[in-house]
Amino acid sequence: MRLPATFRISPRWAPYILISPFLVLFGVFSVFPLLFSFYLAFHSWEPTGGLQAMEYVGVANFAFALQDEWFWKALGNTAWLALASGLPQHLVGIPLAVFIHLSFKRLRVRDSVAGIYFLPFITSTVAITILFSSLYSTDYGLINAVLHTLFGTENIDWLGKPVYVKPTIAFIVFWRYLGFNVVLYLAALQAIPKDLYEAAEMDGAGRWHQFWCITLPSLRPMIFFGVTLSVIGGLQLFEEPFILTDKGRGGPDQAGMTSAIYLYRMAFDFNDFGGASAMSWLLFIIVALMTWLTNRAFRPHKGSV
């Protein structure tokens, strides 16, 4: 028999109590701010003026953003960086994962090797980017010193010349996220049935042929997943360019100013919260669109998953 429940939560109410912290935090820190930001996008507001300084301006903020030279420039920079740092993550990551998979048969060793590649992903972006800014230094930086010894090149002003800023940032991002993708692909490689390769070997298929006809098609779902993550991550790039460029302003000629940085500056440097909110919604639409396009391009064929 059941005990009389005086100070007992009934199973009917238990789930609501269990999800209540989530509901409260989600409402206060996600839903409400998002709605507020949507509301704000149609207003002009400087927070220093207090809430009553808010003024309805219709779609003026959106119109301003769309005509703003820097908005497009930042968007172009972001797309460039997302592509230049994202694509190599997979073009290098896939063969690298295959090499690791083939070369290290013992799981422990394989995990350790993957761990080395994974290390940059979990360490502090700030610490790493600060280190890189010293390695990239023009006159005394290690990178220029190495390039000079190997190829006799003149010292390159990596962070001072607009042409070099983007490749510099892209390399750091690539370096940080390569291991994450290697680990994803390693997991996918381990899941490919071995008899597929044995059958191919019987038929006399070479390694290259096996890679094209078995490995790559089997990796397709993971490529889809990995590329989606790279696109989403690349389009919100903030920390690396923010720390590499002077005062987080995006560098010479705003060459390293990403959309997220411009958004930050719009709000916290220029105090235009309405404009920044409108811009964030425009960017959101663009990110959603890009994600959808990647989806279409890389989606695994029906039934192949």
Binding site: V28, F29, S30, P33, F36, Q236, Y264, F273, A276, T291
Partner: peptide, 18 residues
């Protein structure tokens, strides 16, 4: 919400904290 870009929350977060 897992797919929501982090910059969407930047400005609203500041305001709610304020």
């Amino acid at each position: 919400t897992m797919l929501l870009p982090s910059f969407m929350n930047m400005i609203p977060t500041f305001m709610i904290m304020d």
